[in-house]
Amino acid sequence: MNDTLDALLRLVAVLVVFLVLPLLVGQTEHKVMAHMQGRLGPMYAGGFHGWAQLVADGVKFAQKEDVVPADADRRVFQLAPAVALLPYLVVLIAIPVGPHGFVGEAVDAGLFFVLAVMGVGVLGSLMAGWASANKFSLLGALRSAAQLMAYELPMLLAAASVAMAAGTLSLPGIVGQYHWWWTLWQLMGGLVFFTAGLAELQRPPFDMPVADSEIIFGAYTEYTGMRFALFLLSEYAGIVVLCGLTTVLFLGGWHGPWAGSVGWLWTLLKTAVLAFVVIWLRVSYPRLREDQLMKFAWTVLIPVSLAQIALTGVVKVVTS
């Protein structure tokens, strides 16, 4: 097998994962959320417990008319969903699933790459919000931007702590360095990373940018059909990426019994558990207020992540 074919196959695999896992998370969210609220959720599509609900939704979205508001900035409006979605696809390439090069493409500064590209996704929200020529969209975009600004910092700091501990920025390298007690050592950082990631994805309880009772659907208010579906898909792809990253950075990725042969299964399992937690948090907690969100980021998450960095540094110096 030559190199080009190998790379091509890896990219196709990443694309398939990108198209399947978010739908899986979405379907799980339908069912878990329903049962947590004492409901059944979708039951008809596909026959068995509504397993094909999201496929049916996709067909529905594809049939809908693609409306661009008359006063909107057409090109920016149409481009925004792609800008929101593509970063997550690109990020997925660098997340290692199993040992021995079971990764789309091992990037040298993988951690940096992932965080940098994930931050680009918010540009999609901003473009959508501004180009819609709608005050609710604009408010949503402003909230998105403010939220990203506030939560990018603790996320980076928590990730930096892991990089310090492992002594490398490469994601497979970080997992390779992992020992079980890292999870305890990096616990604060892990919590901060996960929380900040939720806020960056605009998931409840941090979903003020799309708060439907206040600003309709934020930056996505004016979108219909496939473009709207792409925004939704980007949210679920974001969940997959965030959970995968948290697994890799804080939960030891493929480490577990028989890691040599079924390591990839451990990664997927840990990711799935985290995705469940994401859904669980959505069902359990009400939406925060915008100022509470900002206060939480600047007065809780950032000090905690700084404390984590200090702890990491001390332990690192003492043990080396």
């Binding site: 049962h35 004492g38 948090l281 069902v283 359990s284 907690y285």
Partner: peptide, 21 residues
């Protein structure tokens, strides 16, 4: 309080749902 909220939803999930089909 946060833990309690999580516990409530988790307990509801394990119970039979009340939906009439």
């Amino acid at each position: 309080g946060l833990a309690k909220g999580l516990a409530v939803t988790l307990r509801t999930m394990t119970k039979k749902s009340v939906t009439d089909r």
